[in-house]
């Protein structure tokens, strides 16, 4: 579904993304890597926010390039790491703008929607986005992106990109998000960049590990992440790695 061929992208003189070659099917993928490994740049490239110097990317049959932004917005959604809020829009107003619906249509949609229920947004709909706490704001923007990729609204949708979606979420919403994204992975490609290594080690989901702007490893089961990877790529001392009775690797202390 997602096809990345020989992508190179120079970000600065000292950092570049090299030799991205990847095909992604439906599923929930975890994008892992230390700070500055190139995760966000990778997502920016995939979303079409940045254009690669060489190579090409296809989402379904839509080529990712600046001329296709309109078409791309119908097949992919991207939750960026940081959100800007200069104006005091209400959450409802924000959803209305991004979904191209009227505010009353948003109200009807939200009344009985899994995403709104799961993220407990019903009571926040009339609050202004500048007055929300960090976690609340993250939930509102998650809802914006998850509603955007609701297959009932956009039937051709195939790629959801999330950059550190867990930031600021409390445990129950984190749990709900995980379950929702796992379900969603049955229909579309979901790519989550995050730092919750223990979570990834527990879930039997595919993962992509990148380091220094290159793909280090692509695993079909995140439980197969090796000790050496954790030590070499993530710079963890061996002493914090332990195995549970089921033989699953865990990191102690995070």
């Amino acid at each position: 579904m997602i096809n990345i061929t020989k992508v190179n992208y120079k970000i600065s003189d000292t950092f570049k993304i090299t030799n991205l070659d990847l095909n992604l099917d439906k599923g929930t993928y975890h994008l892992l890597g230390p700070n500055g490994a190139g995760k966000t740049s990778f997502l920016n490239l995939l979303s079409g926010l940045c254009s690669p110097d060489t190579g090409h990317i296809f989402i379904g049959n839509v080529a990712v390039n600046p001329l296709n932004l309109g078409q791309l917005s119908k097949v992919r959604a991207y939750l960026m790491q940081k959100q800007v809020a200069h104006f005091a829009l209400t959450v409802k107003g924000m959803l209305a703008i991004t979904l191209s619906l009227s505010e009353s249509a948003v109200e009807t949609l939200c009344e009985n929607h899994d995403v709104i229920k799961g993220l407990d947004l019903l009571q926040l709909l009339n609050r202004s986005i500048t007055a929300l706490s960090g976690g609340e704001s993250q939930r509102a923007h998650l809802a914006r992106v998850l509603l955007h990729c609701d297959l009932k609204l956009e039937p051709n949708f195939c790629l959801l990109l999330l950059d550190e979606p867990y930031t600021g979420l409390d445990v129950s919403h984190k749990l709900w998000l995980n379950q929702y994204l796992t379900q969603l992975g049955k229909y579309i490609t979901v790519l989550i960049s995050h730092h919750e290594l223990n979570l990834a080690l527990n879930l039997a989901q595919p993962c992509i590990i990148i380091n220094n702007g290159q793909i280090h490893r692509v695993l079909t089961d995140s439980r197969d992440i090796e000790k050496s990877t954790l030590v070499d790529v993530f710079k963890l001392p061996l002493s914090v790695l332990s195995e549970t009775n089921e033989g699953i690797l865990q990191i102690i202390g995070i």
């Binding site: 979303s47 079409g48 926010l49 932004l69 309109g70 078409q71 791309l72 917005s73 119908k74 959604a77 991207y78 960026m80 959100q83 800007v84 200069h86 104006f87 829009l89 924000m94 703008i97 991004t98 191209s100």
Partner: peptide, 20 residues
């Protein structure tokens, strides 16, 4: 006006929603 609405979301988000 519809395009202008997208600008409330910030430049990058507006780009993601297909706005030049």
């Amino acid at each position: 006006s519809k395009e202008l609405n997208m600008l409330y979301m910030g430049d990058q988000n507006a780009t993601l929603y297909g706005l030049k």
